[in-house]
């Protein structure tokens, strides 16, 4: 056998290559199983970027189903609560071109929370069943209320309410949510506030 190989250089080379290939292939195969990393599946990573409103505006029942759909190839622009920022983050993660938000699924809005007008609530518990994050508290025939810190503003409770006593109010209002915004590129660097006569008369 060795003698034959030494006579046939072409055969020798082929055998050597095949042998090496088989050996390293086996090694790699073994390593792949033995040292397998339980990595974050891509849908988990996508889910971590979604805003978790659980609103279903994307057409899927919750953020996790949508993240699985994206992992299977659905488009990344179906999440109005996440808006441009989420689309950008998803595009970065998946290394695809960011697309504008698909208007079919809604438009980007200010974050809101649900607010139950408590004296109008009849205690039907329909909204409690609709809430995807268990953020509504109450029992049959008694008033319900929204835990504002847990509410995602998904608006799924609005529709089932038989007496329309649920409002969506802006979540970020008032001085504690304010922060400076980036300067605008413009000629004038200051605002003139018209407080003229009133101030002076009062003073």
């Amino acid at each position: 056998m060795l003698a034959m190989l030494s006579d046939q250089p072409l055969l020798a080379a082929l055998t050597a290559l095949l042998g090496l290939g088989a050996t390293f292939g086996a090694l790699l195969g073994f390593a792949a199983i033995r040292f397998r990393v339980e990595g974050n599946p891509i849908s988990e990573q996508i889910n971590a970027l979604l805003p978790q409103t659980q609103c279903g505006q994307c057409g899927y029942p919750g953020c996790r189903p949508y993240s699985e759909a994206i992992a299977d190839g659905d488009s990344i622009n179906k999440c109005p609560p996440g808006g441009e920022e989420t689309i950008q983050a998803l595009a970065d993660l998946l290394d695809v071109e960011p697309q504008p938000l698909d208007a079919e699924h809604g438009v980007e809005k200010e974050p809101v929370v649900a607010w139950i007008r408590e004296d109008e609530c009849i205690g039907c518990t329909k909204c409690i069943q609709a809430c995807p994050v268990d953020a509504i508290l109450g029992a049959a025939k008694v008033m319900h209320t929204v835990i504002a810190d847990e509410c995602t503003g998904c608006d799924l409770c609005i529709e089932p309410c038989p007496v329309d006593c649920i409002d969506l109010i802006p979540r970020k209002e008032g001085i504690s949510f304010w922060h400076w915004s980036l300067p605008e590129d413009r000629a004038s660097r200051y605002d003139v506030i018209a407080t003229d006569a009133a101030t002076r008369d009062a003073a």
Partner: peptide
């Protein structure tokens, strides 16, 4: 008098 708002 009118007030001016400028950043620091």
């Amino acid at each position: 008098m009118s007030l001016l708002r400028v950043t620091s």
